[in-house]
Design a protein around this nucleic acid. Structure first.
Lengths: 206, 206
DNA sequence: ACTTTATTTAAACACTTGTTTAAAACATGC
DNA sequence: GCATGTTTTAAACAAGTGTTTAAATAAAGT
């Protein structure tokens, strides 16, 4: 497998891998250089500092993460379908990138980092009209009274946590990687049914 | 406020605070020394190394965390009540120690750390008889078919994640600390109802 | 060809890291 | 008093940190 991308991209790719896996303070510039096949000076030649490089990676990962999560809101599906798809998307994305949620949450709380991506996301969500859609569904008595924050909190909690706590749960129950990930697939079915029947009870409870 | 505990305890207390807040690789021995009012050499005088000190802290925090979570299992309450109390306990503990779940999960996956506490916990849980209690409840058609791992995964996901993702959620929605924590209290009610009506549906679905 | 610019390298820089040393201060028992 | 063992300190150590330097190489422009 030949890597024929530019030196800058090689460093960026390696940095993404290493930062996500070990966090900013858990790795060194030299480790990133080694991982990318370059040397230390090149890292700073292209990115000026470990810190600047990290900011670039972090913003990119954050955007990828948020977009994957919430792009479903701007479709024209029904609210119930949107939530069903959202759970599906979440599980799919995190299955491929299991360390990203923890990475973002950790680094975001490391110091009070200003991140334009995060605030922009809220705007995109409210611009998608999903909040009005929720209000209408509630007025019609189709959905339980709960705001969009609560809904996404329910979804992300039940989708992200099982992957984040993999190490803990695995050790507690003595499960192999394979078995644990299989288990999470059946857990997904439980989560989906639980959330949907809670949000859209029949008959409505409110 | 006078701190009249021994030097060893002062260091241990400071180490606990600093490690939980910043993680093993996010802090230095000198920071722990400063935080405890001692100097660097004393840290190693009492604990031989940063690593040994960390192991001591980590095991203690882990035990505190697991015990608080699962001691409820060995009571003689009904299964439904146990789960209700478990959620209550979780929220209470994490409200007081919001960084502990993330700390444990992060450090446990930093490298494949062997931790006797974690495996011992499983034994305690199965010794409590809660698993048989669950089986019986399922046979009687009182509870949905789901194993104890799935149940605790549901509970911990919905209790721990909202605190772990505080930084992210706060920034996304522009909420102050006070408002966010208030929000989590109403979220707790949702979570409790959601989990209980899912696990104990009426009529039973299985 | 030559000049200029961009890329890459090895080496060094100043500083921080975990850890150790050796001496000082303190306590306790006689 | 002195001797003994414990606790505390400042200073040092080697190794590792992020970063810079200055020279070497490659690329591009004319």
């Amino acid at each position: 497998m030949i890597n024929c991308s530019s030196s800058e991209d090689k460093i960026k790719d390696a940095a993404k891998r290493v930062f996500i896996l070990k966090g900013f303070s858990g790795c060194t510039s030299r480790e990133i250089a080694r991982e990318s096949g370059m040397n230390v000076a090149l890292v700073n030649y292209y990115f000026r500092s470990k810190d600047k490089l990290f900011q670039i990676i972090f913003q990119a990962v954050l955007e990828e993460f948020m977009l994957s999560m919430f792009s479903v809101f701007s479709s024209d599906a029904s609210l119930k379908d949107k939530i069903k798809i959202l759970i599906e998307r979440e599980y799919e994305f995190i299955s491929k990138n299991p360390e990203i949620p923890g990475f973002i949450i950790n680094e975001l709380s490391r110091e009070n980092k200003e991140s334009s991506e995060v605030v922009e996301m809220l705007n995109k969500i409210s611009a998608s009209g999903v909040m009005k859609q929720a209000e209408e569904a509630q007025k019609k008595g189709e959905m339980r009274k709960i705001d969009i924050i609560g809904i996404s909190l329910l979804v992300t909690s039940n989708c992200q946590y099982p992957f984040m706590a993999k190490s803990l749960l695995q050790k507690m129950n003595g499960l192999s990687d394979k078995v644990y990930l299989e288990y999470l697939e059946t857990h997904k079915k439980n989560v989906t049914e639980m959330i949907l029947t809670y949000l859209f009870p029949n008959p409505i409870i409110n």
